[in-house]
Design a protein around this nucleic acid. Structure first.
Length: 467
RNA sequence: GGCGCCAUCGCCAAGUGGUAAGGCCGGAGCCUGCAAAGCUUCUAUCCCCAGUUCAAAUCUGGGUGGCGCCUCCA
């Protein structure tokens, strides 16, 4: 397995800290709004990573947090006059539903900030004890970036002069403008948590470091966990700060490998909360099948930026259609086997190379073509069919494509009445065909097409698909 | 301004030193009553310039053009 480490900026062979075990931590959502396509991309990438690692035989411990303490949550709760929990519960549930529609498996651990305060207090205390944090007059506690010689080693940034001079220029008590809050004291007691440092709430960066320490960490290794992932926008300052906290409060670096996924742009423009052009998963799901979205969003390498547009999505759907058409062709054949095939090896090899999905998809397309070709040229081929079934089961397991019933897949979004009507029209057409009344059968086909349905005559009967 | 990424067929997109995967679209054909599906087949020398090398889309330097982070963000 090779992974591109976004801190060292090279592709590195993956060697786990502990034999046969992988600890993976990914920054999850702040639950104050619906999840957008960017959340989907990130969750999909690391879902795929965990599947590939498991296929490689690793026992994977995958954690993705839920940030349920945050200014934006508080703001929304205040605006709506409801409790924080009402907001976070609602959007956590929505997040889970969206992810499920995309075929994303639940991580092994989903720690919440509200349930990890103990670990955060511990970390703050450690940082204070070790002289890496300081408290200002209002009670706020900051991380002292100047105290960490390795600060900025994750993002490779250079601190500019303005930042260095901040102590003089800035009126607040922060020693350095890069210093970030570990604990923010709050006067109004409503939305705050009790802590050894007084009432308040934790800084955002702290939660990930604390959760890693609490749930995943290997105590006796150079690194706390194997792989840390998240969106590219988190590299700085979020991951830089996480790394600093862990480095200074424990005796190890936070992660041996860092993976950052690229952005999802909409029509060439970055989707961002501040631009207000977020495309929500739930809205996309109204129009497109979840598996099609999964396929489309995964079809480009995870590190590249992804430009979402309908045209490409439809091209992508046609590609997935091919998989389902083969599944249709082999329908009814039940095969359960762990048999190793050349295809399986090739597919896994592609994904083992820093999740090269493009190559993986080409391996799949070639397999589909080969099977179709063989089946076209010479009838039965029991063994080939069996092997193709085994291969397709592997695609489902590894990539999560092809999970649906192939007939239903092509008929999603068609209501019951239409289905009945189509069935009638097809029967009528088949009568006409039998009588060699092609004028009638063609006009019936046009009528079916007016429902947005295309039909195909096969030796097994007439099948229909939504156009 | 600081740091960084990217530029491959009409479109999407792999490949990162050994002579351009795959998909969509399009052309031709096979199959079909006709279609659809499937199959066969055709379509690029890799933004520009210079250099390194026996050999470069792949390395180096310089352009040009996109874009990101530096503020909440996946």
């Amino acid at each position: 397995m090779y992974i591109f480490d976004s801190v060292q900026k090279i592709k590195r062979e993956f060697v786990s800290l502990k034999k046969n075990e992988v600890s993976l931590y990914v920054c999850g959502p702040t639950v104050y709004d619906d999840a957008h396509l960017g959340h989907a991309k990130s969750a999909l990438v690391f879902d795929l990573l965990s599947r590939v690692l498991r296929a490689e035989g690793y026992n994977v411990k995958y954690a993705r947090n839920i940030t349920d303490i945050d200014d934006k949550i508080i703001k929304k709760a205040t605006e709506l006059g409801v409790s924080i929990k009402e907001i976070t519960d609602k959007y956590t549930e929505a997040y889970h539903a969206d992810m499920a529609h995309l075929g994303i498996q639940r991580p092994d651990i989903e720690p919440k900030a509200t349930e990890s305060l103990d670990a955060m207090f511990l970390m703050i205390q450690n940082l204070l004890n070790r002289g890496h944090a300081y408290q200002i007059s209002n009670g706020d506690i900051y991380f002292d970036t100047a105290s960490d010689a390795e600060y900025l080693s994750i993002s490779h940034r250079v601190q500019n002069e303005d930042e260095k001079q901040n102590r003089v220029l800035n009126s607040n008590e922060k020693k350095n403008s890069a210093d970030f809050a570990l604990w923010k004291t709050i006067a109004d007691g409503d939305i705050s948590f009790d802590s050894p440092f007084g009432k308040g709430r934790p800084g955002w960066h702290l939660e990930c470091s604390a959760m890693i320490e609490k749930h995943l960490t290997c105590k006796d290794t150079k690194y706390a966990i194997d792989i840390h992932g998240g969106g590219a926008d988190l590299l700085f300052p979020h991951h830089e700060n996480e790394a600093a906290q862990t480095r200074c409060s424990t005796n190890h670096e936070i992660a041996a490998y860092w993976m950052h996924n690229g952005f999802v742009n909409i029509d060439g423009e970055k989707m961002s909360k501040s631009l207000g052009n977020s495309f929500f998963i739930k809205d996309a799901l109204k129009v497109y099948d979840g598996e099609v979205l999964r396929f489309y969003l995964l079809s480009t390498h995870y590190r590249s930026n992804f430009n979402f547009n309908e045209e490409d999505l439809l091209a992508s759907k046609k590609r997935l259609d091919k998989l389902y058409r083969l599944k249709k062709r082999l329908f009814g054949l039940e095969v359960h086997s762990d048999m190793q095939t050349a295809f399986k090896t090739k597919l896994l090899d592609a994904l083992k190379d820093d999740l090269n999905v493009s190559t993986a998809l080409s391996v799949i397309d070639e397999m589909i073509s080969l099977v179709n070709e063989t089946l076209d040229s010479a009838g039965k081929h029991k063994e080939l069919k069996r092997e193709a079934m085994i291969d397709m089961a592997y695609i489902e397991e590894l990539l999560g494509f092809g999970l649906e019933n192939p007939f239903e897949y092509f008929q999603t979004g068609v209501d019951k009445e239409t289905k009945v009507k189509i069935k009638e029209l097809i029967e009528e057409r088949n009568e006409a065909k039998k009588a060699k009344d092609f004028a009638t059968s063609d006009s019936l086909r046009d009528q079916i097409l007016s429902y947005g349905i295309t039909i195909m005559d096969t030796p097994q009967g007439t099948f229909w698909e939504r156009v």
